[in-house]
């Protein structure tokens, strides 16, 4: 079934009788895309699930005051990205407190995770991505895995296109370097 335009869904959401169904439609439209957007950054399924749910809860709470100044798609992605960044920051804080945390390095445990089906080359790639700073990791993933145009990334991340291009370029260099040395 072809999903409706975001504006049509928003119009329905403003009607109290239709808001629940409209939100349900919105979740169906974006849940898979957002899931993979988050999953490729945090790796772990359970963490992804938590972040995705929190993202949609924030969307649910924020939709009544959404001004339509930006595209709904952009706004939703921004919430998901910020939630992911917050999660990563908190995780680093937790890990710095408990050195022996078995989830301290999710990528190193990639193979042991029952939900990872990648081969050795893919594992290596994700190890390389893991060395990137969080924001650069997000830039790389959005460009590399999601093929997102720079102008969309610019709206979501609130960063200039030239800065994003530079960030992606440096991310690729770092990954190449990592793969050469490992």
């Amino acid at each position: 079934m072809q999903s409706r335009d975001d504006n049509d869904i928003l119009n329905d959401f403003e009607n109290k009788l239709l808001s629940h169904n409209a939100f349900n439609e919105l979740v169906n439209k974006y849940k898979v895309r957002l899931y993979w957007h988050i999953r490729k950054i945090v790796i772990n399924h359970e963490d992804t699930d938590d972040i995705l749910q929190n993202t949609f809860i924030k969307i649910w709470k924020g939709l009544p005051t959404f001004q339509r100044e930006s595209k709904l798609y952009t706004w939703i992605y921004r919430i998901a990205t910020n939630e992911t960044l917050t999660f990563l920051t908190n995780k680093k804080k937790r890990n710095s407190l408990s050195i022996n945390d078995e989830n301290a390095d999710s990528v190193l445990n990639l193979k042991s995770q029952s939900y990872f089906e990648g081969d050795e080359a893919q594992k290596k790639l994700f190890k390389a991505i893991e060395i990137l700073p969080d924001k650069q990791k997000i830039v790389f993933n959005m460009r590399y895995f999601e093929d997102m145009p720079y102008n969309q990334m610019s709206e979501i991340l609130d960063t200039s296109e030239s800065a994003l291009k530079a960030s992606y370029h440096f991310a690729v260099k770092k990954i190449e370097e990592f793969l050469k040395n490992n």
Binding site: I43, H45, S114, E117, G118
Partner: peptide, 11 residues
């Protein structure tokens, strides 16, 4: 294939 979503399985 590295870009595909098949890298990770889901429940």
């Amino acid at each position: 294939n590295l870009k595909s979503n098949n890298l990770f399985d889901i429940p």
